[in-house]
Design a protein around this nucleic acid. Sequence first.
DNA 1: CTGAAAGCGCTTACAG
DNA 2: CTGAAAGCGCTTACAG
Lengths: 338, 338
Amino acid sequence: MRVTLKDIADEAGVSMMTVSNVVNGKRARVSPETIERIQRIVAERGYVPSASARSLAAKSSRLIGLLVPAADEDSLMISPHNVAIVGQIERELRKGGYHLLLRGIAEPAEVAEALQSWSLDGAVLLGFLDEEIDRLTPRTVGKVSLLAIDSYSANPLTTGVRSDDYTGALLAARHLLELGHREIVFAGPSFSEVGVVHQRFEGFQAAFAEAGLRWRERLVTATTTHASGRELGGRLMTEHPDATAVFATADILAIGIMEGLADSGYSVPGDVSVLGFDDLDLSAYVTPKLTTIAQDIPQKAAIAVRLLLGTVEGKEHPADPITLDVRLIERGSTAAPR
Amino acid sequence: MRVTLKDIADEAGVSMMTVSNVVNGKRARVSPETIERIQRIVAERGYVPSASARSLAAKSSRLIGLLVPAADEDSLMISPHNVAIVGQIERELRKGGYHLLLRGIAEPAEVAEALQSWSLDGAVLLGFLDEEIDRLTPRTVGKVSLLAIDSYSANPLTTGVRSDDYTGALLAARHLLELGHREIVFAGPSFSEVGVVHQRFEGFQAAFAEAGLRWRERLVTATTTHASGRELGGRLMTEHPDATAVFATADILAIGIMEGLADSGYSVPGDVSVLGFDDLDLSAYVTPKLTTIAQDIPQKAAIAVRLLLGTVEGKEHPADPITLDVRLIERGSTAAPR
DNA sequence: CTGAAAGCGCTTACAG
DNA sequence: CTGAAAGCGCTTACAG
């Protein structure tokens, strides 16, 4: 059926070892004529090495997992923000000669299964909470290299790559303060003492501190979805009648808030300014176009893969965490309060 | 290092075969007490079977590929439309006990490599042109079951699952005709005699025929991106000053067109009506909200997986192609011409 | 109900 | 520069 190493070896009149060396580019150990002959036969017969067999025999599978949280009955949590990351990661891995296993994780126990069953060389964790990452133990992880995107976890089993969330929120709040806003709502998912949202919350407050102001606590909670944002936008001015601006921790949430505000008769940025975080493509399609904090998502993915493959191939300890720059993109959803 | 079948067998005092039977649920052949004992040891030791070894020894890998076109230097072509599909496919496969290998295809030769290297049991083709699917040969495909999403290819090696593109475009054009439009632009990517866009073009023209009208050819070409749509929207009324409506073959394109029209001083739907295809989430976020043809994307993905696993597990011939219903969603971007 | 043997297609030392 | 042997961790018949 399938063309094997042995088939090629027989046809070329050499041992399997020699064919293996040629196929794997260890050419120093084989004569040029033999190489040429073997390569011709490989092409003619359409030989494709068996990754399973290679993985079993070698210590490396050249397979990297992309683990994404997923409720059992739910689809993967591939937010607009994560989509670009998935595509970039696949591309970077392919360029490096690796394959990508995409896996939804419905409950913590599945992580071990996902990591071990295909003998992954490494895995990228996308969209997990720091609390979940903290809980990863050597028993679960084995010797698989792990890289967590958007994580601040100090778990030594993983390396974190994230945007500068603190500075992003600082820039956001500073922009609103400079426009003259004082009563600013912070809208985002509930958060604990660690993680992305917590960092943004800290940065947000820091802007008030550096301006010598005190933030009057206006914290509203919502899941990071358009629907949740819209609902929130609908009641925002009832709950916070003095507010003149909102900083949302995600564009998709900010866009929903803008719609909810519009539905209930408030204009953006006339009555309320709205500022997001991410700079999704989408954010430039809505009306008004959203002012937001941009993070370089393709770069985040590229760096994630580079770090991960570095530890996979170097067998070094996990690399140091990396934090990427962010910047303010001024568009139409923010203006001075009237 | 790794816990193996043999470790469990030794500890339980039985043969590897017996452990294998228990792990794989072939319980009829093992006594209840033995099953219980083995399961306890498996849990204690955290045994995870090696998928590589199983794949090598058995005829099945329980691995399904998701192949997506990708330029070598480019990221995967994961359009908004395809994102939901990827998530759904992973979920359906996971529920069925399969794993998903996500693979970008930069050139045709990579298909064979992608299919064979990991001994895939099957693969979903997402975003390929029918011309590319037509070119697949038994030599490339081997005995891997193939399912092509949004394909009309008659290649017997693949099964197609697609929305009813013909009827969708028919409904779109009929809606515009009923509103009183006569000069309607068809905007989409260039197309040949087969495939999704061709079907939509046929359906579009059919609406004119059933109304006893003749479509004055107003065909404009654009890639299916927001940027391309925006550029097109900017010059649309210059090229077609009599046009009162546009049917775009994709929402993302339609949204770009709306923005281009607005940029050049035309109002939607006041001066021009715009109608899309897909019903992306995004289409309800823009202003005005987009009238469009909705396809049931989660269902498309679920059916794709069901058909694929059917032929994988049944070893039957590829199933019959399936065409899913579509419907018109009226929102704010269409109105009677003035 | 349970087991011993062969084999899946590779790579890894070790020889020569 | 090239090869023979052992082994990676499973499953598949075939016995008993």
